[in-house]
Nucleic acid binder design. Structure first.
Length: 295
DNA sequence: ATGGTAGAATCTCTA
């Protein structure tokens, strides 16, 4: 079975390219990130015409994750258990000068009540489905924006919650076939970035992010793309700006953590670097795993 | 020349 993951940066803008990739590569299951559309906007027909079923979760023009499969798609979950939402920081309390003088002192504070009563919205960043016997999770880890930004704490909490869920799946069944694939928005090693100096003080490289990423190994998972492609400066993403791709100023941020039962089946990994070429490319390229039949 | 790209809810946000 051929299992791939690809942050496509808008599935509507790139549907022809994505379907062409599926057909050219012979991919059976594709985990897609950054679809940038709502469910009803997803171009399902083009995938179905090529022989793939699609599961998708998307709430807006941001985020959005999907799985396309030609080997079945079952038990779809639009989030992982315990997936945190992003809570906007509370607005600063109005000063005395701003408060209306006639407001009764015991008036209920509705904004505070809303913050307490409504859980933060869970973003469309994780979708699970069982395809060809493998529990596949298409993951779009929060970017973090900047160290110290509320989105940075959210990113760390999101990764830790995913790790806890994934550890639970293996505890329930040590033989479980699980693949956690996608855009992790973490640069695990200095050799995964064109110039570590360019990321000093930036997200993606902080010890906390790297520890959150490495914790999946402690939970029993193996990052099989590095296992099969250990060469330094093997990138999966090149920024659109500043001629990053022609200059090969890339990042390695798309990975596949697998359970032991899947790890044993991996016979090869390919990063489809050529997919970054030409007009209309995503800024990420597909990462492809070949899996032998289960023992 | 102090930007530079791309996609989307485009008098601007996100990456």
């Amino acid at each position: 079975m051929r299992l791939a993951t690809w942050n496509v940066n808008s599935v509507r803008a790139r549907v022809d390219r994505v379907v062409a990739f599926l057909e050219r590569s012979g991919t059976d299951v594709l985990a897609i990130q950054e679809t940038k559309c709502r469910d009803e906007q997803f171009p399902v027909a083009a995938f179905e015409a090529a022989g793939y079923e699609v599961a998708h979760v998307g709430h807006s023009a941001w985020n959005g994750v999907a799985i396309a499969s030609r080997v079945g798609i079952a038990d779809v979950e639009p989030a992982f258990p315990g997936q945190p939402g992003f809570a906007k920081p509370a607005a600063p309390a109005p000063s005395d000068a701003d408060a209306p003088a006639e407001a009764p002192a015991d008036a209920p504070d509705e904004s505070q009540a809303t913050l307490l009563d409504v859980p933060p919205p869970v973003e469309a960043r994780a979708l699970g489905a069982t395809c060809g016997g493998v529990r596949v999770w298409s993951l779009y880890v929060p970017h973090g924006r900047a160290v110290g930004d509320p989105h940075y704490a959210y990113k760390l909490a999101w990764l830790e919650a995913l790790r806890a869920a994934a550890a639970g799946w293996l505890a329930d069944d040590p033989q479980a076939q699980v693949a956690l694939v996608g855009d992790w928005n973490v640069i695990p090693l200095d050799s995964d970035v064109y110039d570590p100096g360019a990321f000093v003080g930036h997200t993606h490289v902080t010890p906390a992010e790297r520890a959150a990423f490495a914790a999946f190994a402690d939970a029993g998972y193996t990052e099989v793309t590095r296992e099969h492609l250990p060469a330094e400066h093997t990138y999966t993403y090149w920024d659109y700006q500043q001629l990053a791709f022609p200059r090969n100023k890339g990042l390695r941020i798309d990975f596949a953590y697998t359970s032991p039962a899947v790890r044993r089946r991996v016979t090869g990994v390919v990063i489809d670097r050529d997919e970054r070429k030409g007009k209309g490319a995503s800024d990420h390229v597909p990462v492809i795993l070949d899996l032998a039949d289960p023992a």
